[in-house]
Design a protein around this nucleic acid. Sequence first.
DNA 1: GACACCATGTAATCGGTTACATGATTCG
DNA 2: CGAATCATGTAACCGATTACATGGTGTC
Lengths: 219, 219
Amino acid sequence: MSLPHAILTALLEKPSSGLELTRRFDRSIGFFWAATHQQIYRELGKLEQAELIRAIPGPPAQGRRKEYEVLPKGREELAAWVSRSDPPRQLRDPLALRLRAAAVVGLGDVGAEVRRHLEVHAAQLDDYRAMETRQFPPDRHESAEARLQHLVLEAGIEMERFWTDWLRRVDAAVTELAGPSGSDPQSGPDAKSSLDPKSSLDAQSSPDPGRGSDAEAGR
Amino acid sequence: MSLPHAILTALLEKPSSGLELTRRFDRSIGFFWAATHQQIYRELGKLEQAELIRAIPGPPAQGRRKEYEVLPKGREELAAWVSRSDPPRQLRDPLALRLRAAAVVGLGDVGAEVRRHLEVHAAQLDDYRAMETRQFPPDRHESAEARLQHLVLEAGIEMERFWTDWLRRVDAAVTELAGPSGSDPQSGPDAKSSLDPKSSLDAQSSPDPGRGSDAEAGR
DNA sequence: GACACCATGTAATCGGTTACATGATTCG
DNA sequence: CGAATCATGTAACCGATTACATGGTGTC
């Protein structure tokens, strides 16, 4: 249930049409909750029906774009949502899966994929940093609003820094592994040397099923 | 299309029944791609139909659990997938949205939610660290397989470290903001002092629409 | 034989993604 | 006037989540 609230926030910051919203999502809010124009239009419709927002009756822009603004009820809903609670979303990262798969069936071409991701994340990091210097000049003390927005941007920056650092290390590792030993870019799918099923990452807990061991994951 | 390949990886590491797989997902692979038992059974069915895996004909466990193992075709599919490419998944984080919303409608109770997340991430971090010391003892040089698995675990550790660090800073900030000034736990939804729409995070690009400015996001 | 729980599933729903449709405006 | 682009949508699909169903096992 995050998308409608993202839209409410965006509309409170500045009343907009559907397309404007889409653009603004691409540029800032969407960094933490992406949305396509189809989703946005659909959600705008629902929000309007629920009377949380309304189309500004503006006379001239007829047959053209519709501007929406947030109604008091919408602001209340958003304020209530701010105090609500969601369990933290769990991470989903296919690249990590690829690496684990690569540990079993051979490296194949993961290196290329790793470098692709590295480029994307590095570019995003630059982007965020540019935003930061533009919008949050140093040593001038910030308003409450700016402070919060800055913290969110910092999350983006540190996240991307984490990714780029990690991906560089992964790149180094796969290059080294692919290079000297097998050099298997299209590894034949047969038995590998160092394959010891006992050392597999989660095999060690299975000997004693039913104990408290499994519950650790949920603690 | 990640779930089936996660399952193939898990089954190659060790043939298992549906329930065992579910447990192992909770404990290790699922850290990067969570799945419930319903998803897993459904996917096992599909994989079996596609003849990428098969139920081990094992005679004794009749009427009880079914153990699956990967067929050569499944291994090939996984090896091919390793070399495939997905664009990096985009981040989705409701908490970041909440903070941006809080910047507009008041802090409400975000503090509590921030601390809840902090606890969860701190616990996860401890878990990962424990896994690391257990499974990857230092200074013994690792096999290729272990090296890759270790890198994946490191990603988890650094990710959680990032979250805990950031959440602690956020907690400090919202405590400070909520404390001295308004102390508004249930902020009345009316005009705030430092609310300048011009300084809003993405409003600065709208004066000149259609320029190259929007394209920056995609570079 | 009642009860807890182990193990495997089915069905309904929901949010996100992709592909396609339609009218209106701008530009050559 | 025709083509490109802007702006707003509709429809189909797909993976993930939630709730419910069923039968078998082990235990008192």
